[in-house]
């Protein structure tokens, strides 16, 4: 992902100097979201950076895998950063933040515990916005080939001659 290298060729230091914290996991600046340590950054085209950060956190809270880095969740939701999708997403995230406020947090991202954020999500489980994000993640996250090795899944095998010589029956603990 080229936009993971920092918007407009900014160095990590320059980038972080233009950003402010969004929850514990993200910093946002004008037109971009980044990791607090600058390890990755993503420019947004239409969505507010704060909205994108919220979406990424929401994605992780829906399908939390602690061994999977944020960059994969970013890839899973960045398709919503388009003219066609953004309006509905801004509205949905506004609803999410309103639900967070009603639960006593400044915003969704400001809720520090996963448990609190999950409670907020449970409260809007039947909402079409929640279902849109959850449904999209099923392929958006788990169908990324780069994610598969993290789970041990080996993907295509034909080009390697199948598993007949590569351990189809190598189990040794039974």
């Amino acid at each position: 992902m080229s936009d993971m290298n920092g918007p407009k060729g900014l160095t990590r230091r320059q980038l972080l100097s233009r950003a402010s914290a969004a929850g514990a996991s993200f910093v946002v600046g004008a037109g971009f979201v980044a990791a607090p340590n600058g390890a990755w950054a993503m420019e947004t085209a239409v969505l507010k950076p704060q909205t994108m950060a919220t979406l990424v956190q929401m994605a992780r809270d829906i399908y939390p895998h602690d061994q999977v880095g944020d960059e994969f969740y970013v890839i899973a939701v960045k398709g919503y950063d388009t003219d066609a999708a953004a309006g509905g997403i801004e509205e949905g995230v506004a609803k999410l933040n309103a639900a967070a406020k009603a639960a006593g947090h400044d915003s969704y991202l400001a809720a520090g515990w996963e448990r609190d954020r999950v409670d907020i999500l449970r409260g809007m489980e039947d909402d079409p916005f929640f279902q849109q994000i959850r449904g999209g993640l099923v392929t958006g996250l788990y169908n990324q080939k780069a994610v598969w090795p993290i789970f041990g899944y080996e993907g295509a095998s034909y080009e390697f001659g199948g598993y007949i010589e590569r351990g189809f029956n190598d189990i040794n603990w039974l």
Partner: peptide, 27 residues
Amino acid sequence: LGLPFMAAFLDPGAWGREFTTALDHYE
């Protein structure tokens, strides 16, 4: 099932750690 179909079919509609800890042990 491969990982992509397992995610779709293990418990359709499910989310949260009860679901994801299952996939964590896909291997």
